[in-house]
């Protein structure tokens, strides 16, 4: 019984990480049909920012304030990743909106460069980030111990989800984003500056990648390829969940997270990956455009 609960908890935990990563992807993909292959590298940037801030605290701050580094690094990672994302959008992706496959390749090139830059600066081996003391240990439920770090990530992803929801559905700026998602030309005619919306949304999506990177430092050592290990799963979340709907991303993330952990528990890590891929292909037979489809009459 305990093992089953623990497996489920690990599944939910993986799901929350995937959700954190996929939220950003779902936004950029849903809005502009751009697959940002450099998203994984934005995660990496978030993780390294946490590492750098930790080192600054070790060297310059009094030890009793050490735990604060993590609280500070979340907004910093958000802002830095968002600005890099905005830079990427303005300098490159903007020119490739009509060619989604090409933007995929170009952003992959950017990702490669970012990865190599990280390797040059921080070295190829993984570096460790010490978790803040308030996140070490775990919540004891009977004989079960649920690590605080994983609970924290779950909480963080829920906070991110809620803030995206509020932004999309309760603010004027979010309404404009939804309008552009639904019908770009019509929104343009009604005076929405799609340029600004694209730029802003891409920055938001990238910012979430930074936050995700920050959270990943709680789970283990970080290296230049930390993003790539999660990014394909996150893409699958977007494919399964459907584009442009938060509910799709949530159910996709937790679905894949839980199934993945369960399969790996029942078989082994290798077969688990194969099984989940087969399940996804089978699922797409039933729902080709994802769990939540945005209906429209437009053809390509």
């Amino acid at each position: 019984m305990n093992e089953i609960i623990l497996t489920l908890f690990n599944g939910v935990s993986l799901g929350s990480i995937l959700l954190l990563i996929a939220l950003g992807l779902a936004i950029t993909f849903g809005l502009m049909n751009v697959i940002n292959m450099a998203h994984g590298e934005l995660i990496m940037i978030g993780a390294y920012i946490t590492y750098v801030i930790q080192n600054i605290f070790i060297n310059y701050a009094p030890p009793e304030y050490f735990d604060l580094y993590f609280i500070i690094s979340i907004p910093v990672a958000l802002i830095v990743a968002a600005s890099i994302g905005m830079l990427l959008e303005v300098s490159l992706i903007r020119h490739l909106y009509k060619r989604p496959l090409d933007s995929l390749l170009a952003t992959w090139g950017v990702g490669l460069i970012l990865q190599q830059t990280a390797r040059s600066i921080f070295g190829a081996p993984n570096v460790g980030v010490t978790s803040p003391s308030f996140l070490s240990g775990g919540l004891e439920l009977g004989s079960l111990i649920l690590p605080y770090s994983r609970l924290f990530i779950l909480g963080l992803s829920i906070i991110c989800l809620i803030s995206i929801y509020i932004y999309f559905f309760r603010t004027a700026s979010g309404r404009r984003v939804r309008a552009v998602m639904q019908n770009r030309q019509m929104a343009e005619c009604l005076g929405v500056s799609t340029r600004k919306v694209d730029m802003l949304t891409f920055a938001i999506g990238s910012g979430f990648a930074g936050v995700a990177g920050c959270a990943l430092t709680l789970l283990g050592a970080i290296g230049p390829t930390i993003g790539t290990s999660y990014i394909i799963d996150a893409f699958m979340v977007v494919v399964v969940g459907g584009v442009g709907a938060l509910f799709g991303a949530v159910s996709g993330a937790f679905g894949i997270g839980i199934l993945n952990t369960v399969f790996e528990y029942v078989t082994n890590a290798t077969l688990g990956k194969v099984l989940i891929f087969i399940v996804i292909i089978a699922f797409l037979q039933w729902r080709p455009s994802g769990l939540v489809m945005s209906r429209s009459r437009s053809l390509d």
Partner: peptide, 24 residues
């Protein structure tokens, strides 16, 4: 009618799966 970037992502996932299988 899964096409465009969707297919591209699936084809990349196939790589991940097969390579994991081969290494495993």
């Amino acid at each position: 009618r899964i096409s465009g970037v969707y297919f591209t992502i699936l084809s990349q996932a196939l790589v991940l799966v097969v390579v994991t299988l081969f290494v495993g």
